[in-house]
Simulated assay, not measured.
Amino acid sequence: MGELERVPVGIVGASGYGGVQLVRLLQDHPHLELTYVAGNSTVGQEFSELYPYLSNIVHQKIEAYDVDVIADRCRIVFLALPNGLAYKMAPELLARGCKVLDLSADYRFTDLATYKTWYGMERTDGEINEQAVYGLPELYRDQIAESNLIGCPGCYPTASLLALAPLLKQGLVVPETAIIDAKSGTSGGGRHAKVNMLLAEADNAIAPYGVARHRHTPEIEQVCSDLAGREVLVQFTPHLVPMVRGILATVYATLRDPGLVREDLLTIYGAFYRNRPWVKLLPAGTYPQTKWACGTNLCYISIEVDPRTDRVIVMSVIDNLLKGQAGQAIQCVNIMMGWEETLGLPKLAFYP
């Protein structure tokens, strides 16, 4: 890759919070150039009309979706769309030689019956779906490097799985005892107007939702089962908290060996995430705050062991819009293109 060569990129569905994060991040990437932005209800508008803070930098107009135009202009396409649309577009884009990264749930599942059960849509693209790789680089880097179709993970699964992965892969816990208690800022609900997201509703309150039925549950279970080598069910409960960005996942599980102490697990996690630049393991007794990851592609992890209950407690924080969405998608592109995994991605939050 020559220093001045830039790969043309398109975004379909750039008007949402995930899409605008991609637009912003692409401005700082040395090898990627935004050449196409598609929308639906906003066709013909300047992108900067939707997000005026980008008016001095982004000058694209929002265009109608056209696979011929995309194939002519773009080598990489991000599909930042509601669930149920990407699987109708991706086969055509792949056939025209594009690399596709889907930020919805459409290509996250190896078993389309699971997708139908939780998302209610019948699929006919089984052969294409088999080509998709789950876009969590800390676990599937080698597969991502060889793929042209990435199903980018959800934000809750990213935080939860990075907390759980070493425990399950090394067989350190009883998988069925895993409980994930997770909290997210309001931007995770998207940009559409919703009553529960109004300031008067969400401020000064914390509320669980999707209890025992949140759609990220089967996604988490699929990867947990892959790591454990057998089918695993987990208990996952998300909560809405009155902040804009960030996720905290606190994971509990029963240790197989009650003799393990915190220092043992810190060593194991350190080895597991060696050469994984976006996971930062915190020293003993330091617990992560969402603010530390805000605006970055980082995941901060802290570990504690409770000898009274023989449980391990793992705390994981990410920015739901970056490591939980757009930043991780670009991390995947870097791997697909053979570039440094950290290229063009923010490493340090503004604090406080």
Score class of each variant (00 low, 15 high):
residue 107 Y to D: 00
residue 208 P to D: 11
residue 289 Q to N: 11
residue 229 G to S: 03
residue 329 A to H: 01
residue 93 L to S: 01
residue 276 R to Q: 15
residue 144 I to L: 01
residue 247 I to P: 04
residue 216 H to I: 13
residue 44 G to F: 04
residue 318 I to G: 04
residue 209 Y to N: 10
residue 64 A to M: 04
residue 266 L to V: 07
residue 38 A to L: 03
residue 194 K to E: 02
residue 176 E to Q: 15
residue 111 D to T: 05
residue 174 V to N: 01
residue 180 I to W: 06
residue 238 P to I: 13
residue 236 F to E: 03
residue 148 N to G: 06
residue 334 N to Q: 09
residue 349 A to K: 08
residue 5 E to Y: 12
residue 100 V to C: 02
residue 39 G to M: 01
residue 285 G to I: 01
residue 111 D to R: 07
residue 107 Y to I: 04
residue 181 D to C: 11
residue 30 P to Y: 05
residue 290 T to E: 09
residue 182 A to M: 09
residue 296 T to F: 14
residue 305 V to T: 11
residue 158 T to V: 11
residue 181 D to T: 13
residue 7 V to F: 03
residue 323 K to H: 14
residue 213 R to D: 15
residue 74 C to W: 00
residue 252 Y to F: 15
residue 228 A to E: 00
residue 281 L to Y: 05
residue 28 D to R: 12
residue 82 P to L: 07
residue 337 M to R: 14
residue 186 T to S: 14
residue 323 K to T: 13
residue 147 S to D: 12
residue 275 N to F: 13
residue 149 L to N: 03
residue 127 E to L: 06
residue 153 P to F: 14
residue 214 H to S: 14
residue 57 I to K: 10
residue 340 E to I: 05
residue 219 E to Q: 03
residue 250 T to W: 10
residue 340 E to L: 10
residue 324 G to L: 13
residue 148 N to K: 07
residue 324 G to K: 02
residue 76 I to T: 05
residue 91 P to Q: 05
residue 10 G to H: 00
residue 88 K to V: 01
residue 182 A to W: 09
residue 105 A to Y: 03
residue 275 N to W: 12
residue 306 D to K: 00
residue 308 R to T: 08
residue 177 T to D: 11
residue 92 E to D: 00
residue 238 P to W: 10
residue 23 V to F: 11
residue 50 L to N: 06
residue 352 P to R: 14
residue 266 L to W: 04
residue 164 L to Y: 07
residue 299 C to H: 08
residue 351 Y to T: 14
residue 334 N to L: 12
residue 160 S to R: 13
residue 186 T to W: 15
residue 100 V to A: 02
residue 89 M to F: 01
residue 233 L to T: 13
residue 69 V to R: 04
residue 341 E to D: 11
residue 259 G to S: 02
residue 21 Q to V: 09
residue 219 E to M: 10
residue 182 A to L: 12
residue 67 V to S: 02
